[in-house]
């Protein structure tokens, strides 16, 4: 796979009057990469995407799309992009077919090519049943497909999707996600989302943006490692919480034990380890030695959700080490 840089942004600043929406955002996206763009609402995701798609101009800084500057060579830059804006706006009065034909025409596809592309795109996005219907009559899932078809019709090397999965039911979201994954094999995709599970599945790299600044840029796994201590969840039969707790605390490699509460005859604990060794055999052994009946033993990594919250709720939290100490279980 070539590693050509398809999107390059340098120190993008966007000010609306005295509100700073973007503060020196730089990024590089290479060919064949699927980049997940995460951040709370109002962090600057959409603004960044709007600058990259030439809808709005940066106050300072520059961006290049496929080698074309978004200000100097805006038309060429736009030709290389397929864009699905937030909330997927469409013309409700047009038929699906009319709309896609219109987009193809504006994109400069000739008649024969348009016909060919329409056929493939309708197949790819599964619009076969509805292409002769008015867009206003379509369900949200189908509208999303129409929006994607619109973005894909001219086979752009770069796709920019602003929250492509928001507002869909879980089944639809999975379908659209798989579609995007398929598309992403040959193209450069930038997608923004709130759904962290989607990022883990669909993206090669994650950018987290907060208050107009990029606070993390890593692979999903890398992010987890950075923030990441694992934790163990232990369920023990019995009533004697103190005894259990001291027994668990005595295990080599356990830093902290926290009771998570008791149900009839069951006690639940959370263990945080000091190192990265797997503690499960030791926990089991300790249970046997102390004559405790283990009902459950689980090991889980800290989720992206937690990392996301840590990185975006306080400014200093960008340093990952403190975040591990945050309460992992609410």
């Amino acid at each position: 796979m070539s590693s050509e840089v398809m999107i390059e942004a340098r120190d993008l600043v966007k000010r609306y009057d005295d509100v700073v929406a973007l503060d020196k955002v730089s990024m590089e996206v290479r060919r064949g990469e699927v980049l997940g763009f995460l951040g709370p609402n109002g962090a600057g995701k959409s603004t960044t995407m709007r600058i990259l798609t030439c809808f709005t101009s940066p106050t300072e800084g520059s961006a290049k799309i496929n080698g074309h500057d978004v200000l100097e060579e805006s038309l060429q830059a736009r030709e290389a992009i397929g864009y699905l804006p937030e909330s997927n706006p469409l013309y409700p009065d047009l038929l699906v077919l009319e709309y896609l034909q219109f987009v193809a025409e504006v994109r400069g596809l000739d008649k024969a090519e348009t016909r060919k592309r329409l056929k493939t795109i309708v197949e790819e996005t599964g619009l076969g049943d509805v292409y002769a219907k008015q867009i206003r009559t379509l369900s949200k899932g189908y509208r999303q497909r129409v929006g994607l078809a619109q973005a894909l019709i001219h086979q752009p090397p770069i796709l920019i999707l602003d929250e492509p999965m928001s507002g869909l039911d879980p089944n639809q979201a999975v379908e659209i996600r798989d579609l995007i994954k398929d598309i992403g094999r040959e193209r450069t995709v930038v997608l923004s989302t709130h759904n962290l599970a989607e990022v883990q599945v669909a993206c090669d790299r994650v950018l987290i943006i907060n208050k107009g600044k990029i606070v993390a840029d890593d692979t999903p796994d890398g992010l987890r490692d950075r923030a990441g201590k694992t934790r163990y969840l232990v369920t023990v039969q019995g009533e004697a919480a103190d005894k259990c707790e001291s027994a668990l605390k005595a295990i080599d490699g356990v830093e902290r034990v926290r009771g998570l509460g008791a149900e009839t005859g069951e006690l639940r604990f959370e263990l945080l380890p000091t190192g990265s060794d797997d503690l499960r055999p030791r926990i089991f052994k300790a249970a046997v030695d102390n004559d405790l009946t283990l009902l459950g033993l689980g090991r889980e990594g800290q989720g992206l959700e937690q990392i996301f919250r840590d990185l975006t709720t306080s400014e200093e939290a960008a340093g990952a080490s403190d975040s591990a100490n945050a309460d992992a279980a609410e």
């Binding site: 798609t53 736009r78 992009i81 400069g108």
Partner: peptide
């Protein structure tokens, strides 16, 4: 109002 302007103006159109 509907936001379609964003689709329109990000296509290669002056």
């Amino acid at each position: 109002r509907t936001g379609t302007v964003e689709v329109l103006l990000t296509m290669p159109l002056k």
